[in-house]
C-alpha cells in the first residue's frame, strides 16, 4: 500500500487527456467533459479531505465553507473591485488558510464527534454569513457576472480549455499529495491516525501536523471554489451549504477513505450519479442514491477502490 505506482497515474492521465475527444464523437455523452470539470473541481476538495480524514484521521464537516470562501473571495474581488482573477484566487487561498488556522487551532484539539460538530458549526456559520451579508454576497440570489479566466491573453472560455486547466491542477495536487504521503510527514500522519499518544511520545508534533493538513485541505478547497466561480460565472450560498459538506464525506466514503485514489473515484461517482445517471429515476432519485450509498457501505467497507482487493481474494481461494 505504501508504494505508489507510477503506471496507474500515467494511465489515468492518458484517459483524462483523450476522454473529451472520445466523448465528442458520441452524442449521448457529449456533455460528459462538462461534467468532468465539476468532477475535477470536487476531486481537488476530496484529495485534501482524504489526506485529512483517511491519513490524519480528523473528520471535517465544514469543508464546504472553505470551498465557499474561495468562491466568494474570487467573486467579490473580481466583481466589486475588478481585480485579476488569478490574484483573487491566491488571496482566496490565503484567507482560507488563515481561517483554517484560526478554526483549526482550537478545533483540532477536539476529538471524534466533538470535532465533527465543531467543523459542522463552523460550516453553518460561514453559510449564514454568505446568506445574510447581502451587500457583499448578494444574499440567496448570489453573485453573477463573475469573469472567466485567461492567461497571457489566452482565454479559458470553452469547455475543453477549462477541462484541461482544471485537470492540470487536479494532477498537480494529486502528485503533490502522494509525495507528501510517501515522505516522513506522511508516516507521521499515519502514526497520528493510529495513536496520537504514541506518535506524540515518538517525537511527532501532533498538533502542528494536524493543523498543516487542515490548512492544506482548506487551500485545495478554496482553489476549487475559485475555479467553480470562474467557470460558472455565478455563485449562490446554497452551493456551499452543510449538505455539500456531507456530500463530500459521502464521496470519500464511497471511493474509499484510506487511499487518495478513493477520493478521485468517489468524486467521479457522486458527480455522475447526481448530475446525470440518476435523472432516469426522477422522483425516486434520492432513494436510489441512498440505497447505493448503503450498499457500498455494507459490502465495500474500503469503498470502490477496495473492489480489486476483493476480486483478488476470490481468485486466491
Amino acid at each position: 500500500m505504501l508504494r505508489i505506482r507510477k503506471l496507474p497515474i500515467i494511465g489515468f492521465a492518458l484517459f483524462i487527456i483523450v476522454f473529451p475527444w472520445i466523448a465528442g464523437t458520441i452524442p449521448a455523452i457529449g456533455n460528459y467533459p462538462d461534467l468532468m470539470i465539476f468532477a475535477g473541481i470536487y476531486c481537488l476538495i476530496t484529495i485534501g479531505l482524504s489526506l485529512l480524514m483517511g491519513y490524519a484521521g480528523q473528520i471535517s464537516l465544514g469543508q464546504a465553507a472553505f470551498y465557499g470562501i474561495g468562491a466568494y473571495v474570487s467573486a467579490i474581488l473580481t466583481v466589486h473591485f475588478g481585480l485579476s482573477p488569478w490574484f483573487c484566487m491566491v488571496i482566496g487561498m490565503l484567507i482560507a488558510s488563515a481561517v483554517a488556522v484560526l478554526v483549526g487551532v482550537p478545533s483540532l484539539k477536539l476529538r471524534g464527534h466533538y470535532l465533527a460538530m465543531a467543523t459542522l458549526a463552523f460550516g453553518i456559520i460561514v453559510f449564514i454569513v454568505f446568506n445574510e451579508e447581502i451587500e457583499w454576497t448578494g444574499g440567496p440570489d448570489g453573485i453573477s457576472g463573475i469573469p472567466g479566466l485567461s492567461l497571457f491573453g489566452f482565454e479559458f472560455d470553452t469547455v475543453l480549455k477549462y477541462y484541461y486547466l482544471v485537470w492540470f491542477l487536479v494532477f498537480a495536487a494529486f502528485i503533490f499529495t502522494i509525495n507528501v504521503i510517501q515522505s516522513r510527514s506522511g508516516r507521521a500522519l499515519r502514526a497520528i491516525h493510529i495513536s496520537e499518544a504514541a506518535s506524540s511520545a515518538m517525537g511527532v508534533n501532533v498538533s502542528r501536523f494536524k493543523i498543516m493538513v487542515f490548512v492544506y485541505s482548506a487551500i485545495l478547497a478554496s482553489l476549487a471554489g475559485s475555479l467553480y466561480a470562474h467557470y460558472l460565472n455565478f455563485i449562490n450560498p446554497s452551493t456551499f451549504d452543510l449538505f455539500f459538506s456531507i456530500k463530500l464525506l459521502i464521496m470519500i466514503a464511497l471511493g474509499g477513505m484510506h487511499e487518495v485514489w478513493g477520493a478521485i473515484v468517489g468524486a467521479f461517482l457522486v458527480t455522475f450519479l447526481s448530475f446525470e445517471w440518476l435523472h432516469f429515476f426522477e422522483e425516486f432519485e434520492v432513494i436510489v442514491y441512498g440505497i447505493i450509498l448503503l450498499l457500498v457501505t455494507i459490502f465495500l467497507p474500503h469503498g470502490l477502490v477496495g473492489i480489486p482487493g476483493i476480486v483478488k481474494g476470490w481468485f486466491r481461494r
Binding site: M53, L249, I250, A253, M257, V286, Y289, G290, L293, L294
Partner: peptide, 16 residues
C-alpha cells in the same frame, strides 16, 4: 465513520 455514513444513507432513504 462507516457507521455514520450508513446512518446518513438511511436518512436519505427514509426522507425519499
Amino acid at each position: 465513520l462507516t457507521l455514520i455514513i450508513a446512518t446518513i444513507a438511511a436518512s436519505i432513504i427514509i426522507k425519499g
